[in-house]
Amino acid sequence: MSGKTLLCRCEDVTLDEVEHAIAKGHTDIESVKRFTGFATGWCQGKQCLIACARVIEDKTGAFPLAPITPRPPVHPMPLGMLAGLANVVSTERVTHHERGAVRKPNVGNGEGESQ
């Protein structure tokens, strides 16, 4: 049979493409990521990281000692929900006492909210 084996479904990166990148000399996992684009789509590597790391091991004989840098976020986040965050995060760590005073309107203790 002949068909594509998709290592990264989000960016349509095939097994063939990853093998080609390794053959071109992109043998470390960060370089393979950049050259093929795997792990840069919707799932950010949840599905494909291991698939690609295992192909690197198969082709180079060594499983990568570290994965690609895990960057935020793990799940996609709507910008609109983040837009008000400036009011609840601060650049400095404030003391417990100050925090209560500064952020009263937005601070909840998690109780009584819809579960």
């Binding site: 840069t40 919707w42 960057r71 935020p72 976020p73 986040m77 709507p78 609109g80």
Partner: peptide
């Protein structure tokens, strides 16, 4: 507003 952030 409902467009989602994928990576930072």
């Amino acid at each position: 507003a409902s467009v989602k952030v994928l990576r930072q």
